[in-house]
Write a protein that binds this DNA or RNA. Structure first.
Ligand SMILES: [Zn+2]
Ligand SMILES: [Zn+2]
Ligand SMILES: [Zn+2]
Ligand SMILES: [Zn+2]
Lengths: 141, 141
DNA sequence: TCATTTGTGTAATATTATTACGTAACATAT
DNA sequence: ATATGTTACGTAATAATATTACACAAATGA
């Protein structure tokens, strides 16, 4: 994560560091709860920091979950197209980037006269490790 | 819209018909307000109807807007992959289906051991007619 | 210095969604 | 017909998520 050199305010830094240390997406209010000890008191302090970080591309919003996650990519913080595979069992979100999809989507957009600003792809399902866990559990019964 | 032959309850029918007659996505609470005259009183009545209709594939949820829209496709009501281009100016949502994208995404999923259940793609931007309106407005100044 | 932008803190409020509980309608198998 | 299981309904209360409004402070740049 090459976010250390970013010039951020105290609140923005707190939120970003927390998200980076989390292994799963967090809601704005759980971010707030975690940062009360650091002096944050109101939802707006979190939402403002999140807005800025999302604008920088170092945090993404998971639209389908009202949750937020640090960008998994070391440098290329895309705001234009972001994709996640979200496991409904463990709650983790795998970020992916796919040029082919980006091209098809921008092709569709230009063919339809639509000026795209940002695209979000969210796949819901079960991740590999949760599938294995489920298999071995049912096998052991 | 081939939804007439669907066997729905009164509340489900009310919600679906309202969404079909709307030219833009609606929030659950605006659906409720529109249907108060028909006897609906509580959010849950709307959410329950929406859950059912979404399960049938005749209504989609726009994750990024907390809004709901009737499926634009006459027969093939896909639950697996749905895509929308959402205009941030007029609020309308254009539904699209793209086999190429579905294939790439399912390819990514199987390569990563992820069992996908549903996928949502949401493109935010400006639709063709709103772009033209903006152009002619700036040209007229 | 002055003006502008950006960020902060607090309070109040708006919007979206769910839980809990009891009842009614419907299908269908005995 | 009656018992059973499933689905839907209505109401109330509450939880979870997000925004508006206002006043002030810090950083930025001419
Ligand atoms: Zn990213
Ligand atoms: Zn998992
Ligand atoms: Zn559809
Ligand atoms: Zn438009």
């Amino acid at each position: 994560m090459a976010t250390a050199e970013l010039k951020l305010t105290k609140n923005q830094r707190l939120v970003l560091d927390l998200l980076c240390s989390s292994d799963a997406p967090m809601s704005a209010y759980s971010i707030l709860d975690q940062l009360r000890s650091e002096g944050l008191r109101a939802p707006l302090q979190v939402y403002r920091a999140l807005d800025k970080l999302i604008g920088l591309g170092v945090v993404h919003r998971l639209e389908s979950m009202n949750a937020f996650v640090a960008c998994a990519h070391p440098s290329c913080h895309s705001v234009e197209m972001v994709g996640f595979a979200i496991c409904e069992t463990c709650g983790k979100a795998l970020e992916f980037a796919d040029n082919d999809i980006a091209e098809i989507l921008s092709g569709w957009a230009s063919a339809n006269g639509f000026a795209a600003k940002s695209t979000s792809i969210e796949i819901k399902g079960t991740c590999a490790s949760c599938q294995q866990a489920a298999e071995s559990a049912s096998g052991a019964e």
